[in-house]
Every structure is written in structure tokens, then in C-alpha cells.
């Protein structure tokens, strides 16, 4: 931290450094790079799922209409929380600290509701007999793929909730600035983006006809 400050500001206000390559803060660039890497992680998982689904003859299609409605409700909550995050970042940019904090916490609340809906969904599937590697409908791989993909996404959501809470509290105390809040938002939108691929491929391709 101190080293960064030493090198960033020259003694007499002279530029001592080349300008950052993309004209964004270091932290934001790190977050972007992380997002790219994480996108490939999710991509690889989805490819693995698709591979196994193609190669399996008795792939089950168990999702009832209630599951689909639940999935859409989850999408709605997550995209809405993305939107509230945008409002928070906007308020922070405009200097309205109180509003930014409120909207950030609404975002976290959205994330928590999403996680609750997700767990409710898991529990109801569990009640129908779905296990990690067994289910009454067909290939056990379905449960394995379903739980690993949605599980990884749920981990990201919970992690995002914690991260945004920490950043917002830090922002409240003045430890973080609005740029950091924006970076938290960047991650949150990415979690949202991944969900946009999880819903059609994991849920909608496996509905009961």
C-alpha cells in the first residue's frame, strides 16, 4: 500500500510514471481480469456439463413448471439487485453517500433473497429424490452437474454479498471510495451475467414436457 503511494505521487507533482494502459484504476483492471478468468471457469464447467449431457442417453428432464417459475423469480431478483447496485454506484458518484449505502444494502438483500430461493429450490428437488449422484428419473450425472454448476454460482453470490457488505461498510467509514464500490458492482453484474447462462442451459433445457 505504502509502496504504491510512494510511486504514484511524485515529490513535486511531476509525473513519475507512465499512464495506466487502459485509463482505469489498478483495482478495476484486476477485477476485469478476474472476471475474464472466472468466465472461463464457468464456461469450462458448462462445457463439461454439455459434454456429459450429449454423451448420456438417459439424461433426465425433471423440472416442473414450479421450478421454472422459481428460476424466473430468481432471475428477476438477481437482475433487480444488479439494477439497485447501479443506482448505488450512481449515487456514490454523485457524492450522495447515504443513498449509495442504502442502495448497496438493498443489493445485498437481493442477493440474500436469491440465495434463499436457491436453497428452497435445492430442498424441494431434494424432496423429490434428487441426490448428488442419484435420482429417480435417469442418469445420476444430472444431479452432479446441476449441483456443481448452481453450487459454484451460489458460492459466487454469497461471496458477492459478503464482499459488497464489506466494501459498503468500508465506504461508510471512508476506508473505500466510490471507485471501490463500482468495482464491487462490476463483480455483482458478472454474477448476474453467469446466471443468464445457467438458467437456459441448466434449467430450461431440462424441463419436463
Amino acid at each position: 500500500m505504502s509502496e504504491a503511494h510512494l510511486t504514484v505521487g511524485g515529490p513535486s507533482g511531476v509525473e513519475t510514471q507512465e499512464a495506466p494502459a487502459f485509463a482505469i484504476s489498478h483495482k478495476k483492471l484486476v477485477m476485469w481480469l478476474f472476471i475474464i478468468s472466472d468466465a472461463i471457469t464457468f464456461g469450462a464447467l458448462l462445457f463439461a456439463y454439455g459434454y456429459l449431457r450429449n454423451a448420456t442417453t438417459d439424461w433426465p428432464r425433471p423440472f416442473e413448471t414450479s421450478s421454472v417459475i422459481n428460476a424466473y423469480a430468481m432471475t428477476f431478483i438477481l437482475v433487480t439487485s444488479s439494477f439497485t447496485m447501479l443506482v448505488a454506484v450512481r449515487a456514490a458518484r454523485a457524492g450522495d453517500k447515504g443513498r449509495a449505502i442504502t442502495w448497496s444494502f438493498i443489493t445485498v438483500l437481493g442477493g440474500l433473497i436469491f440465495a434463499l430461493l436457491h436453497i428452497k429450490e435445492w430442498l424441494s428437488l431434494f424432496g423429490e429424490g434428487l441426490r448428488l449422484f442419484a435420482n429417480p428419473w435417469g442418469s445420476g450425472l444430472f444431479g452432479a452437474a446441476f449441483f456443481s454448476i448452481t453450487g459454484l454460482h451460489l458460492t459466487h453470490v454469497v461471496g458477492g454479498c459478503i464482499a459488497i457488505t464489506v466494501v459498503t461498510l468500508g465506504y461508510k467509514r471512508g476506508r473505500y471510495d466510490q471507485g471501490d464500490l463500482e468495482i464491487g458492482g462490476l463483480y455483482w453484474h458478472f454474477v448476474d451475467l453467469v446466471w443468464m447462462f445457467v438458467v437456459p442451459f441448466v434449467y430450461l433445457l431440462n424441463i419436463k414436457h
Partner: peptide, 19 residues
């Protein structure tokens, strides 16, 4: 980024009984 999920799936195979 590709090795990470592959290893997670492998661990699941070995520990959690998936295949």
C-alpha cells in the same frame, strides 16, 4: 481457469461419489 473446475469435479468424483 480451466484447470480449477476440472480439479473440483475430480475431487467431487473422489470424495462425493459423483462420476
Amino acid at each position: 481457469a480451466v484447470l480449477l473446475p476440472a480439479c473440483v469435479l475430480l475431487i467431487l468424483d473422489r470424495v462425493a461419489g459423483t462420476s
